[in-house]
């Protein structure tokens, strides 16, 4: 069963800007799906159309088999949306925001009360239920929006940059929660600029750029296509000369730090053998950037320069 099926979706705004140039996308039920792209790529437009906030120019959207243009209410009842920006009434209390949303989805009062309590407790907001929402912190406001989106137990939860601007502790707890919600059977579509988030949470991924899907595959096989890893090495002793490591590209950023690009064909064992042979002791090693971030940049840059993306040789 497909949670979401998009065919030839196009959107041209009144000013002539073509935000979507005919995208096709399928998301299976139960998936945790990442929709990534740089700013202005078209992902928010796509999400806006799926959630009925934006009218498509042409194409079709189907949610759990319900065509959005023909069975609008049935299709909408399957969706919960956490938008990018705060969009609840800042003068309402936390509880009334979530309760009202349950009402809009037709939940009888008794059920709405139960679900509201459940969602607010899950979001650690129960103590704040009577607080006026504008007095909450940024992280709490984001959690209110997640509680609101989940109150009608949607089959498809769309999270549009849900962790933007929240501190690392809240972000980690939100990741845990998203995983739990997905494990309970809810399909999740996530857009984020934190690629570490997408890599650790999502099983499948689509990358959108300039209104087109430029990549659509499962996360594991996408990451497997990464030919080169970039590492930062902290050295025990300072180096006066940049070492030469066969098959690798090396840059010395300061006397005790090396940045090394290691092709998969070389591997870490061979790298460390060469370092040991040159009597270079390494204290610690970390990825220069997140692996998905590296792929993402490759894809976006290659699109703009029309080069082959993932198999570029070392400079």
């Amino acid at each position: 069963m497909k949670a979401l099926s998009i065919r030839n979706l196009k959107k041209t705004y009144k000013n002539g800007f073509e935000a979507l140039k005919g995208i096709d996308l399928d998301v299976e039920a139960g998936d945790f799906f990442a929709l990534l792209g740089p700013n202005g790529a078209g992902k928010s437009t796509a999400i806006g159309i799926i959630s009925s906030l934006i009218t498509a120019t042409s194409g079709s959207v189907s949610i759990f088999g319900h065509d959005l243009s023909k069975e609008r209410e049935l299709a909408k009842s399957c969706i919960g949306l956490v938008p990018q920006e705060i969009n609840f009434n800042q003068f309402d209390t936390v509880q009334s925001i979530v309760m009202n949303q349950a009402g809009y989805y037709g939940a009888p009062r008794k059920l709405a009360v139960q679900r509201t309590e459940q969602c607010l407790k899950q979001m650690d907001l129960w103590d704040k239920r009577n607080s006026v929402s504008r007095r909450l912190s940024g992280g709490m406001k984001r959690r209110v929006m997640i509680a609101r989106a989940m109150v009608h137990a949607p089959k498809l939860l769309i999270l549009d940059e849900p962790t933007a601007g929240v501190d690392i502790e809240i972000r980690r707890s939100m990741w845990k929660l998203m995983k739990e919600v997905n494990q309970q059977g809810t399909t999740i579509i996530l857009t984020t600029h934190y690629l570490e988030e997408a890599e650790s949470l999502c099983r499948n991924i689509a990358i959108i750029d300039q209104g087109k899907i430029v990549e659509n595959s499962d996360m594991a096989s996408l990451l497997a296509r990464l030919n080169i890893d970039h590492f930062v090495l902290d050295l025990a002793e300072p180096l006066t000369l940049t070492p030469v490591l066969e098959g690798c590209h090396v840059e010395q950023t300061n006397e005790k730090v090396l940045e090394v690009s290691v092709p998969k064909s070389v591997g870490l064992n061979q790298l460390f053998s060469q370092l040991s042979a040159q009597n270079i002791k390494v204290l610690s090693l970390k990825n220069k950037s997140n692996r998905l971030e590296q792929l993402f940049m490759d894809l976006i840059e290659s699109k703009s320069s029309q080069k082959t993306p993932l198999h570029r040789g070392l400079g």
């Binding site: 906030l53 009842s77 969009n87």
Partner: peptide
């Protein structure tokens, strides 16, 4: 917050 109503069925 009109979006709450537009998104809902």
């Amino acid at each position: 917050n009109i979006e709450e109503l537009i998104v809902a069925p």
